[in-house]
Design a protein around this nucleic acid. Structure first.
Lengths: 127, 127
DNA sequence: TTTGACCTTTACGTGAACGTAAGGTATTGA
DNA sequence: TCAATACCTTACGTTCACGTAAAGGTCAAA
């Protein structure tokens, strides 16, 4: 039976995700993760681990920690009153729109970069 | 004859691209743009204008000003000795790889965001 | 001529996201 | 028993990308 680990030390997560312990503690200060403690030592659960993965992916696409926290909180709530659900959808949609625009920009930049690379490589051949 | 303007004041570029004059002067300090001067006043050419557009798109995809400067400089050079061309291709390829990864991350995040939005909207109907 | 709209420089301030000591605790293997 | 290893907290330092005065120059319209 291929079972997943239930707990990770801070060092293990650091190795797995290539982040520093300082960063993980900082995320905790900012209330993005809340690992348990055994004494003073942090014990990260599987859920903490996947939240961390989400955080890091959020960072890679350029979201601020504040944005990431907001989205994680919205996921956590998931429900709530109707007025709040409307706000939830609005905020998520706004982030989604930003990401769509980013995709367009990335595609344009990639096209230019690749064209330029091809150009320089061509010069390489002709010499 | 639909001709393009040849010069822009700092204020005009600020309006067009929705950036502050402080930002434009900062980019100049960092050697990303070098507008001419009429007296002390900056005169941006069409080329400066398109460089600015490039800079801002670079920022939107998460490049640092240092990265952007490097790429702009590489574009400017365009040629050079063979050893340098190799480095040029390497650096460009590295940035391109980073952007490809970012696309993947954006797609994943977008999928999750949209699924979540759909979920919350569905809850909205059922109440 | 003076008001207002622009432009300039110099220089200190700011928020985000950690880095980096400095010093202490707890467990573990030689 | 002693040293290494891994964890902890507190707190000041750092980089990036500008923001924000403060103080002033230039030019056109009223």
């Amino acid at each position: 039976m291929l079972t997943t680990r239930t707990h990770y030390s801070i060092g293990e997560l650091c190795d797995e995700f290539a982040v520093t312990a300082r960063a993980l503690r900082f995320y905790e200060d900012e209330a993005l993760i809340s690992p348990e403690r055994r004494g003073t030592t942090r014990l990260y659960s599987e859920r903490d681990r996947s939240r961390l993965a989400w955080i890091l992916r959020g960072k890679r696409v350029g979201l601020s920690l504040a944005d990431i926290k907001e989205l994680l909180d919205l996921y956590d709530l998931g429900d709530g009153r109707k007025t709040q659900r409307i706000k939830t959808v609005e905020r998520c949609q706004a982030q989604a729109d930003k990401l769509e625009q980013q995709r367009v920009d990335i595609d344009a930049t990639l096209t230019e970069l690749k064209d330029f690379i091809a150009l320089v490589k061509a010069q390489d051949q002709e010499s």
